[in-house]
Simulated scan of single mutants.
Amino acid sequence: MISYKPFYQTLHKKGMTEYGLIYGQGLSANTIHRMKKGEAITTKTLDTLCSILKCRVEDIIEYKADE
């Protein structure tokens, strides 16, 4: 299972908000909504987030094995 927990930690560390990503950087509100629900996003979106936040993919997502 893919978790977006690192994304929210990175967002906090960078002093950025979801609002800032949507209205300041043009990220889709639907993308944030999907991430909150743990749903899939595209690799293009991952690339965009890494570019905006100047971070690595591991700072956005992590894999957790189903138990």
Rank of each mutant, 00 (worst) to 15 (best):
K64C: 02
K36T: 13
K44A: 15
C55E: 02
M16K: 09
G24M: 03
M35N: 03
G20Y: 08
M35F: 03
E62C: 15
D66W: 10
H12I: 14
S28H: 01
L27E: 03
L27G: 06
L49Y: 03
D59H: 07
L49R: 00
Y19T: 15
T43M: 07
G20S: 08
K64W: 01
E18H: 14
K64N: 02
E58V: 12
Y4T: 11
L49G: 02
I41D: 06
T48D: 12
K54Q: 10
I61A: 15
L49I: 10
T42Q: 01
F7V: 04
G26M: 00
L27A: 11
I60C: 01
R34T: 14
F7I: 06
R56I: 03
T43F: 12
T10H: 02
E67T: 13
Y4F: 15
N30T: 13
P6Q: 00
G20N: 09
S51C: 13
L46G: 05
A29W: 09
S51K: 15
T43N: 08
V57K: 14
T42L: 02
E39Y: 09
I61E: 09
L27R: 13
T42F: 02
I22A: 07
K13Q: 06
T42M: 00
K37V: 00
E39P: 11
Y23M: 07
D59I: 12
S3L: 05
E58D: 12
G24T: 01
E18R: 13
L27W: 09
I2G: 09
L53F: 04
M1K: 15
G24R: 14
I22F: 05
N30K: 10
S51A: 07
L11D: 01
K54C: 05
Y23F: 13
T10R: 02
S3P: 08
P6N: 07
E39N: 15
I60W: 01
G26N: 05
K44Q: 11
K14Y: 00
Q9N: 08
T42V: 07
Y8R: 04
D66V: 05
Q9T: 13
T48R: 14
E62H: 07
K54V: 07
E67A: 09
K36G: 08
Y63W: 10
K64P: 03
E58W: 07
L11G: 04
T42I: 06
I61F: 13
I61M: 13
